[in-house]
Amino acid sequence: MGDLGIVFAVLAGALLLVFLFLGAMAVRRFQLRRELGTFDASLSTRPGHWTMGICRYQEDSLEFLRLFSVSWVPAKTYVRSDLTILGWREPGEFERARLLPGSVVVQLQFRGEDFNVAMKYGAYNGLSAWIEAGPAVGVGIWR
């Protein structure tokens, strides 16, 4: 095998790895979107920086999973009883290019830390109902 054959084999292997990674990401996204209680969202923990992903409701927490990843482990987990909705707004001019069309920016607070989540208005309605339907802190047992 000559030098050209080795270069070709390395490039073919690298291309195969890229396709396998993209295929794994696509299968993960498809499986996540099939689950009940998931919605497309973008998360911003600092101004001007948005990360695309999928939010998933759990019994007592909201999980954020990055879109461009093959990991099933959530990047962020927010405990339901510590989440507070501060309000929502339309995206600013510079945010519109980074967010899904028709999204609203929901301002949330978790344990004193403010952050934003962009989602469709219908998903916002679901999120606010899910937070409000949770148990009062210190009262009863959440099952």
Rank of each mutant, 00 (worst) to 15 (best):
Y121H: 15
V137S: 12
L108D: 06
L22R: 11
G140K: 04
W72I: 08
Q107L: 07
L15N: 14
F21D: 12
P91K: 05
T84P: 04
L100D: 06
G87N: 06
A75F: 09
L100G: 10
D3M: 15
T51P: 01
L127W: 13
L67E: 15
R80Y: 01
V73L: 12
F19M: 05
G140C: 14
W142E: 06
Q31A: 14
S61P: 08
V104K: 00
V139D: 10
L62H: 01
N125C: 09
I141H: 14
W72V: 06
T84C: 15
E113P: 01
L11G: 15
N116A: 09
V106W: 15
L11P: 08
V73S: 14
V73Q: 15
E59I: 02
N125S: 06
L67W: 09
V105Q: 13
R29C: 04
F8K: 11
W50M: 05
R66N: 03
F115Y: 08
R29I: 06
R80T: 00
L67M: 13
R29V: 05
E63A: 07
W142D: 10
T38Y: 02
V73H: 10
L16F: 07
H49Q: 12
R46K: 15
G112V: 04
F21H: 08
F39G: 01
R111T: 09
F68W: 14
F110P: 10
F64A: 01
L62D: 01
P91N: 08
Q109D: 04
G138L: 13
G138V: 07
L83H: 00
G134F: 03
L65V: 10
L65N: 05
A75K: 09
F39M: 01
S44F: 10
E132F: 03
A12S: 08
G23P: 02
E63V: 02
T45S: 01
I6F: 14
R98I: 03
S81M: 08
L32I: 08
L127D: 02
D82S: 03
F19H: 13
M1P: 15
Y124W: 11
R56S: 00
A41N: 02
S69G: 11
A118C: 04
M119F: 01
G2N: 13
S81Y: 03
P74W: 00
G138E: 11
S44W: 09
R96H: 12
A133D: 09
G5N: 13
W50T: 01
E113Q: 06
V7S: 12
V117S: 09
A14V: 11
A12T: 15
G138T: 10
A12H: 11
G23W: 09
A14E: 07
F64S: 00
D40G: 03
F115L: 01
F64I: 00
A41Q: 02
S103I: 14
E59N: 14
M52S: 12
D82R: 00
W88S: 08
C55Q: 03
F8M: 14
G13I: 06
F94K: 08
Y124L: 04
Q31I: 09
R96M: 13
A26S: 04
F19S: 07
K76Q: 09
L67P: 13
Q107S: 10
P91W: 01
